[in-house]
Simulated assay, not measured.
Amino acid sequence: MTDTPETAPENLPDNAPHVPVLLRPLLKAVARVSGDAQAGASISGAWLDGTFGAGGYSRGLLAEGADLVIGVDRDPMVFRMAADWAGAYGDRLRLVEGTFSHLDDYAAEICPEGLDGVVLDLGVSSMQLDMAERGFSFMRDGPLDMRMSDKGPSAADLLNSAEEGTIADILFHYGEERAARRIARKIVELRAVQPFETTFQLVKAVERCLPRPKPGQSHPATRSFQAIRIWVNDEFGQLIEGLEAAERALKPGGQLAVVTFHSLEDRVVKRFLQARAGQEAQGSRYAPMRAEVTPAFTLVTRKAVAPDEEELAVNPRARSAKLRVARRTDAPAGRADRATLGLPAPVLKGDF
């Protein structure tokens, strides 16, 4: 598993800028197929930024010529933070509080003729990590929350009520934590004495189950915090529904650009795009052949695009990021076979 974005900010000062990851290669990739390179490729039409955050991708798209950007985020905080600059774009920027799993509904209301592009930047934002009161960071003590919105149960609610086996499954499948059962057992043992309320309580519980890290190794709580955050926010359920919603919302020729931050996410995005592009691996001699799919996408990036040395020097948070881009065909929208996407087991079992 690659490093997750929650490991990098801990080495940066609290006032480190919130830099949109892989913005330059993303803009280059989507412009290359939307214009004549010799005449100067550009970005145009209506786009939806499904993970608005600090607005970096939205502003990048608008700067490159997008006529309209719909900024969607489930976190109401981001819109309060954008209040001092968003108005300068007038009707070119429309902001919607909601989840990107419903992005086709938002697009239909604002742009019924269809979208020219959708951008998704997955995972937790650097802003959320940097705010101790949000409970995402294992290096900052605060309420054990981890909700990307202000709705639903918090991480503390879940950890204080879930069965030991469920906690172990989440840690293993969502965080690839080898000591999942040991950590789950310790959580249940400690919560019987005192309920979990803060991030540092969880950090100490994990640290008691794992050896002290060697120089250069990630913090022992990295995988556990990733797993619990994914669990709290149903991130994989949102991801699949969001990818399918993008397929429904994009007009023929429209583009889908997805930035991931760990191998579990990237695996799902890669397999989804391959499957919907008709490039899913066929059955072996021991398995039945899969039904032929009319491609709903063509792959713009055959391999994931990683940050270059220049970007890493400016923004260490980008080190595990990967970008994939695909272009919509005129085939009818459909659904991916979830059993083939490499989803972590708890999602397939319907634990949410």
Rank of each mutant, 00 (worst) to 15 (best):
M1Y: 01
E6H: 11
T7Q: 10
T7K: 07
A8Y: 14
L12N: 05
P13V: 09
P17E: 03
P20D: 08
R24T: 15
S34M: 13
D36H: 12
A37Q: 14
A39I: 00
G45P: 00
W47Y: 06
G50C: 09
G53L: 09
Y57N: 10
L61R: 06
A66T: 02
L68F: 00
V72A: 10
D75Y: 04
D91S: 07
R92Q: 09
L95E: 08
V96S: 05
V96H: 04
I110T: 02
P112I: 02
D116G: 12
G123Q: 07
G123F: 05
M127L: 12
L129D: 00
L129M: 06
R134P: 02
G135M: 05
F136R: 03
F138Y: 15
S149I: 07
S154I: 04
A155H: 08
L158S: 02
G165N: 14
G165H: 13
D169P: 00
D169A: 15
I170W: 11
R182I: 03
I187L: 09
I187W: 03
V188P: 01
Q194E: 14
T199Q: 07
K204C: 08
C209I: 02
L210H: 03
Q217A: 12
R223F: 01
R223N: 04
F225S: 07
Q226E: 11
I230E: 09
V232Y: 04
N233F: 08
L243W: 04
E244S: 11
A246P: 03
E247T: 07
G253R: 03
H262G: 09
V268M: 10
R271M: 03
F272L: 08
Q274M: 13
Q274F: 11
A275R: 13
A275Y: 08
A275L: 14
A277C: 09
G278Y: 01
Q279D: 08
Q279R: 15
A281L: 05
Q282C: 01
P288K: 15
E292Q: 12
T294S: 12
L299G: 11
K303T: 14
E311Y: 02
V314N: 05
S320W: 05
K322F: 13
A326P: 11
D337P: 06
A339C: 07
G342S: 06
